Amino acid sequence: MTIYSLYIFDRHCTCVYYQDWHRTKRPKPAVEGGILPAVSHAITPQPLPADSNAGSTFTSPRNTLTSTSGVVIAVNEPISPGPGLYQTPPSHQQTQANPPPSTSGLAFDEEAKLVYGVILSLRNMIKRISGRDEQFTNYRTSTYKLHLYETLSGYKFVMLSDPNTDSLRFVLRQIYNGPFLDFVVRNPLVIMDSKERGIDNEYFRANTDRLVKGLSVFP
């Protein structure tokens, strides 16, 4: 039994946080503009090289992204890994010697939309069929099990695990009552209920990582 990944969605149906542990195929980086900044370095779109057009003097009437337009096309700044983050390859030689793990066929923004769509559809179906206010907490397939914990403020904590894992709703509640409240809600530097930025905080990520790795179901 093991835990694969964690998603957090806000009340605007937007993924504001992502973290994974035992995924055999990591998601592809999202397309530019597909996700909010500060969701996770692992799935942030990679910037274009700053010198990709260096030495080229060709201009086209269709080219509106010129250096005189005042638009920042790309920023070539290295991303320093924080606790629980993926480290970027230090050199081209090391990348060839240690190839990165394979990725899934979907970009992360498409994957997040599918995860949220499944949650919304199943939750609505359960409420309609049951005829009463019954909660949707998890479902299982042959390859994974999805666990859901929804807060009163509309945040949805979603965790994917091995299909044989018992309910992890209490773990999601611990993440909310512990690291999330301590390092996100009570942090004056974190803008809550924002449509412009995620909630990737190094202390929240490190404490969530420590909490999950301390579970008995985590090998």
Rank of each mutant, 00 (worst) to 15 (best):
L6A: 03
Y7N: 04
Y7A: 07
F9W: 14
D10E: 09
D10N: 15
D10T: 07
C15A: 07
Y18P: 02
D20C: 14
R23F: 10
R23E: 13
T24E: 10
P27V: 03
E32F: 03
I35Q: 03
L36N: 05
P37G: 13
A38W: 03
A38E: 09
V39H: 01
H41Y: 10
P49A: 10
A50K: 09
N53C: 08
T57E: 09
T59D: 08
S60G: 11
P61K: 14
T64C: 06
L65F: 08
T66A: 07
S67F: 09
S69G: 15
P78I: 08
P81L: 04
Y86G: 06
Y86D: 10
Q87I: 10
S91A: 04
S91P: 03
S91V: 08
P99L: 11
P101F: 10
P101V: 13
P101S: 12
S102R: 14
T103M: 04
G105P: 01
L106Y: 08
A107E: 00
A107K: 00
E110H: 08
V115A: 03
V115E: 02
G117H: 06
L120G: 02
R123I: 12
K127H: 09
I129Q: 00
D133V: 11
Y139K: 00
R140Q: 02
L146W: 01
H147F: 06
T151H: 07
K156Y: 02
L160W: 02
T165A: 02
R173L: 08
R173P: 02
Q174W: 13
I175Q: 00
Y176N: 08
Y176M: 05
N177Q: 12
N177A: 11
N177K: 09
G178Y: 13
G178V: 12
P179V: 05
P179Q: 11
D182N: 11
F183W: 12
R186D: 11
P188M: 00
P188L: 00
I191Y: 00
M192N: 14
R197V: 15
R197G: 10
I199V: 15
E202Q: 08
R205K: 09
A206L: 06
N207D: 13
N207Y: 14
S216I: 01
